[in-house]
């Protein structure tokens, strides 16, 4: 029998996003509200001055949240429904499973991303090159968060623990760190701490591309190198250490 990888990919998207959105729409409302609520608060507090940064922050949060959601969702399907055990003993491809699950997270976040992209077009109005740079930064953000999420999913054996990690990491890496505001707002000794978060580099790149933060070319290149390198290293680590089955 000829087996279709595209079917396997679509199965992951159907299970983890389409059917969930269709049958439990409240989850969709929650996904849309999280990045938009920060955006609204920052817009009000700054009287519109930081709307650009807030939109960029919303996009980063949305991408980071996708990766963290992957962690919770894989753990949930693996530990609570034993779906992964059923798939291990089947012709399903582990690689396609992971890619499909990652794609499902993006699709789940599409409504929030669509709203943020429209707002970005209105308030930031980037050119074609800028849009490409912003997209590239977000893709690296997604790859980084998805690998962090997948690592936690393979280590976690309890869904309550998984969701707790997911919420904790999302708060630390997107709400506390300078994602919705410029890093220059942080007093100097604490600024170094912000560089422990991968979201800081993506935020610097996006704010610089959008023109809301003035950085030297060297700093921006360093940011690209760090986030790109981190994504690559994490991908290698995950592909080597992820556990599809017990051995």
């Amino acid at each position: 029998m000829r087996r279709s990888y595209s079917s396997q990919l679509v199965a992951a998207i159907l299970v983890n996003s389409v059917y969930e959105m269709k049958n439990y729409p409240i989850n969709l409302v929650n996904t849309v509200l999280s990045p938009l609520s920060f955006l609204v608060v920052i817009d009000f507090v700054s009287r519109g001055a930081l709307i650009g940064q807030a939109i960029e922050g919303g996009l980063i949060m949305s991408m980071f949240q996708s990766g963290m959601s992957l962690q919770g969702d894989i753990s949930h399907l693996k530990n609570d429904f034993k779906l992964q055990d059923m798939l291990v003993s089947s012709p399903a491809s582990p690689a396609v499973y992971v890619i499909g699950m990652a794609a499902s997270e993006i699709i789940y976040n599409l409504p929030a991303l669509a709203i943020l992209v429209v707002l970005g077009g209105v308030y930031i109005h980037p050119g074609a090159v800028q849009a490409l740079e912003l997209t590239a930064a977000l893709v690296l953000m997604f790859l980084t968060s998805i690998t962090i999420g997948f690592m936690f999913a393979t280590l976690s054996s309890d869904i309550v623990q998984s969701f707790a990690w997911s919420r904790l990491l999302t708060t630390i890496f997107t709400a506390i760190t300078p994602v919705y505001y410029p890093i220059t707002y942080i007093p100097f000794p604490f600024r170094y701490l912000a560089y422990l978060s991968p979201t800081t580099y993506v935020a610097e790149i996006m704010q610089s591309v959008a023109g809301s933060l003035k950085l030297s070319e060297g700093v921006v290149i360093t940011d690209w190198a760090i986030i790109g390198g981190l994504a690559a290293v994490l991908l290698i680590v995950v592909s080597r250490n992820a556990r599809w089955k017990e051995s």
């Binding site: 199965a11 049958n23 609570d80 779906l83 055990d85 059923m86």
Partner: peptide, 27 residues
């Protein structure tokens, strides 16, 4: 094919969606 000891149907799906996607996962 296996149904493990503690396997459960996915709560947000229907039996038809469950069987359909399991087969799609099998290719």
């Amino acid at each position: 094919a296996i149904v493990p000891q503690e396997a459960r149907t996915i709560s947000w799906m229907t039996p038809k969606q469950s069987a359909l996607t399991y087969l799609m996962w099998r290719g």
